[in-house]
């Protein structure tokens, strides 16, 4: 599929940020079937589809939390499933993941949640960590003085989501993965989060993969949209192509929105 990336030395920034090559995943049934996807550096790709089609599984593959039954997953030049533990760790420091329910650590304050990866990586001094956390919270329209000391349980759904995004972007990753970032939010908060995602794209110049059911928002912010259906992409292309698609399932999906 992509004969050149094997030769790419890791020090050089590869043009492809993420490549899934003929990936298949089967649990009790086949979830992903021979799926291929290339995401270019700096691109924003939305993955949409009905629930249970394997969208979260796709993100877990990229993070190496899940191994494919066949096929390859190459992220920023590293084959996720062949990488050593050390390589995988170092790869993960360059990936930020926003989990569906935010997955904030219940027992840690907002500050400690956002600082978590910075502390684990252990490269920044304590004062740099403080500065970075404040900067990141501000970037997400959260008041550091107000939220730093609060526990996740005390935050509203929209704020939890934003703290989850802050935790993911605090280490300034090259690749951001979002799992249903607006699910369960009211339309207004949903809109705010979408705008924030757009702002992060512009300010941090990250590659983004966004799993979402909010097709309208995705048509607006994504460079390309992938529609997952029956274990494969029923559609893969930009917003205009998707609106004008004649493929029946794609049409139905767009019109339903």
């Amino acid at each position: 599929m992509n004969p050149d990336h094997d030769m790419t030395p890791r020090s050089e920034t590869p043009r492809t940020a993420v490549e899934l090559a003929q990936v298949s995943v089967t649990f009790s049934r086949s979830v992903l079937n021979d799926v291929s996807l290339r995401v270019a550096d700096g691109e924003t790709v939305a993955v949409v589809g009905e629930s249970g089609t394997g969208k979260s599984t796709l993100l877990r593959l990229i993070l190496g939390l899940q191994s494919p039954d066949s096929g390859r997953v190459v992220v920023m030049g590293t084959d996720v499933n062949r990488a050593s533990t050390t390589d995988r760790r170092s790869l993960r420091t360059r990936i930020g993941m926003v989990f569906q329910g935010a997955a904030l650590f219940d027992s840690l304050s907002t500050f400690e949640n956002v600082a978590f990866a910075l502390r684990e990586h252990g490269t920044l001094s304590e004062s740099d960590i403080r500065a970075r956390v404040r900067e990141t919270l501000t970037l997400l329209d959260l008041d550091p003085d107000e939220v730093s000391g609060t526990l996740p349980a005390q935050l509203s759904g929209g704020m939890r989501k934003r703290v989850g995004i802050a935790r993911a972007v605090a280490p300034r990753p090259r690749l951001l993965l979002y799992d249903e970032p607006t699910a369960g939010l009211d339309p207004l908060t949903s809109e705010t989060v979408t705008a924030l995602m757009q702002r992060l794209q512009q300010e941090l110049h990250v590659t983004s993969i966004v799993v979402s059911h909010d097709i309208r928002a995705m048509l607006r912010i994504a460079d390309r949209i992938a529609l997952l259906h029956d274990g494969a992409f029923a559609f893969l292309g930009d917003a205009d192509a998707m609106r004008n698609s004649s493929e029946p399932y794609t049409r139905a999906f767009v019109e339903a929105a």
Binding site: F99, G101, D106, E120
Partner: peptide, 17 residues
């Protein structure tokens, strides 16, 4: 178990712990 089903364990791993 609660951490597992709310993906906090995945989050830990992703964040390097």
């Amino acid at each position: 178990g609660a951490m597992k089903v709310t993906e906090q364990l995945d989050a830990l791993e992703t964040l390097g712990a």
